[in-house]
């Protein structure tokens, strides 16, 4: 690890100023990912701006809009009565991620900012366009069992690792951002990026911008929700595939549906087309299978990850069955 300076500003403005002045500076909150990246030499910031003193640790409900401060811990969000009551899908997704020890350190904003777990990104002796643009993609032609089946490019096939974000994209959350040019709101689905020709950019945050929180609109998805995570061991493993499924069912008819997947793309992968096939239908396995087929139409696989397509289809059906309790 390189030597670096460390500051702990007391205000949001001071934090933004501190990071804007220094091109290699990074915000640090829980540090559950950043410290690993620094130890591995993947990142070598010359300055860390510790934001833990900022007043961004809260969960409130106003006018049916739920607000989660960026520094609220993953474990706090997962266990909070407002979350469990209004957005149980988010609670389920959080509890499927990492371990309790990590969730006790990891923050809401930090979770959104975590980098891919692609082995080639972590090993500085390997090619990786995300870490070192232009060096090539190690995973293409390499060990790519964990890699993307949707939206990848010939520059990068890494996947986004979060569980929390899969629920948030399904719930149409909004990311609240403060920056040198003021505050702005980013729809969750537009926060993370596909790799394209710039895989080094994970998201659309501008220079000096700080995530201050997220908002989740009122949703009808309080009963029929399920977060299914398929992984190589029962806990503390990243998803092979995961599915966030939420249904609004009345009179045996699906009024509204949300589907998103993790472990399959460079960003939380919302399945809008599959959702559309469900609306107005009865919650049956046959209809879920149609949705699953539509969901995976654009899949493209690599040497070791072809299993993800049938696994994704089966997982969508299973998650919808669990959500609908059929």
């Amino acid at each position: 690890m390189n030597q670096f300076s460390y500051v702990r500003p007391a205000s949001q403005q001071a934090a933004i100023d501190a990071i804007t002045r220094d091109s290699s500076a990074r915000f640090i909150a829980g540090g559950t990912n950043l410290l690993d990246l620094m130890k591995n030499g993947v990142l070598a910031p010359e300055k860390l701006v510790d934001i833990n003193r900022l007043p961004l640790r809260n969960i409130t409900l106003n006018n049916n809009i739920l607000h989660i401060g960026a520094l609220t811990l993953n474990s706090e969000v997962a266990a909070h009565p407002l979350i469990k009551t209004h957005h149980p899908l988010l609670s389920q997704a959080l509890l499927a991620g990492a371990s309790q020890q990590l969730r006790n350190m990891a923050t809401t904003g930090g979770n959104m900012m975590q980098r891919t777990r692609c082995s080639y990104f972590y090993d500085t002796t390997m090619p990786c366009n995300k870490r070192t643009p232009g060096s090539g993609c190690g995973a293409i032609g390499g060990v790519n069992r964990m890699h993307a089946i949707f939206g990848a490019s010939d520059q990068c096939i890494a996947v986004h690792p979060s569980d929390m974000c899969i629920a948030l994209v399904a719930l149409d959350a909004t990311v609240l951002v403060a920056g040198p040019k003021g505050n702005r709101r980013i729809p969750f689905g537009e926060f993370h990026r596909l790799p394209g020709n710039t895989p080094d950019q994970d998201n659309n945050l501008g220079k000096g911008e700080l995530i201050t929180g997220i908002e989740i609109p009122h949703s009808p998805f309080t009963n029929h929700v399920y977060y299914l995570k398929v992984r190589d061991r029962a806990s503390y493993a990243f998803a092979l595939v995961s599915v966030a499924a939420a249904l609004d069912i009345s009179n045996n008819t699906i009024r509204d549906a949300r589907l998103a997947m993790g472990g399959v793309a460079h960003k939380p992968w919302r399945l809008h087309e599959a959702e559309k096939t469900l609306i107005g239908k009865t919650p049956t396995v046959e209809n879920f299978r149609i949705a699953a087929t539509v969901a995976t139409q654009s899949a493209r696989t690599y040497q070791h990850n072809a299993f993800k397509v049938p696994m994704a289809q089966n997982s969508i059906v299973t998650a919808l069955q669990k959500a609908a309790a059929v």
């Binding site: 777990r117 082995s119 080639y120 972590y122 090993d123 002796t125 390997m126 190690g138 032609g141 390499g142 060990v143 069992r145 190589d232 061991r233 029962a234 806990s235 503390y236 493993a237 990243f238």
Partner: peptide
């Protein structure tokens, strides 16, 4: 769960950490 994966092009392990090399946890 356990399998040490090598990228044979480089002769290098790619899951050489506790997160990616899956030793069973209590839940297993």
């Amino acid at each position: 769960t356990e399998e040490a994966l090598i990228d044979h092009r480089f002769g290098r392990y790619v899951n050489n950490n506790y997160a990616d090399y899956h030793v069973p946890v209590n839940a297993d």
